[in-house]
Simulated assay, not measured.
Amino acid sequence: MATIKISSQHNWTTETAHQTTNGTWAKWLKLTDGQAERKTLWFMVSLIFQGVLFLPLPAVLIYYFNAPTLILAVTLSLFFANIITGMSGSGIRTILNLFAVSFLAHLIMLAIFAL
Rank of each mutant, 00 (worst) to 15 (best):
A81H: 09
V60C: 01
L47I: 14
G51R: 03
V52Q: 03
L72K: 07
L55C: 04
L70D: 07
T75Q: 09
G86A: 07
I84E: 06
G51P: 03
Q50S: 10
T16I: 12
G86V: 03
L107F: 09
V45K: 03
L98Q: 14
I71Y: 06
V52R: 05
H18Q: 10
I4M: 03
T3N: 11
F49V: 07
L115Y: 08
K39P: 01
V74G: 02
S90F: 10
T20L: 11
L55Q: 00
R38H: 13
L76G: 01
A105D: 00
L57S: 03
F79T: 02
A81E: 06
G23E: 05
I83R: 03
W42V: 01
I62K: 04
A26E: 10
H18L: 14
I71N: 11
I83A: 05
S7Y: 11
K27E: 11
A17Q: 14
G89I: 06
I4E: 12
I92R: 10
T16M: 12
M1D: 09
I4W: 04
F43S: 06
I84A: 14
I48W: 09
K39T: 15
E37H: 07
L96E: 03
T75M: 03
V74Y: 05
T40L: 08
W25I: 15
A26T: 06
A36K: 13
K27W: 11
K30T: 15
K39I: 15
W28P: 01
P56L: 06
T13Q: 13
T24E: 08
I62N: 06
A36H: 11
G89A: 09
T94I: 12
I92Q: 15
F79H: 00
P68Q: 09
A59D: 02
I92V: 15
D33T: 01
V60A: 08
T40F: 05
S88Y: 07
E15Y: 11
F54K: 00
N11F: 14
I4D: 03
A100S: 14
T16L: 10
N97I: 15
G51Q: 05
L57H: 02
T3S: 11
T40G: 08
I6C: 08
R38M: 09
G91Y: 03
I95E: 05
Q19M: 09
N22R: 07
R93A: 04
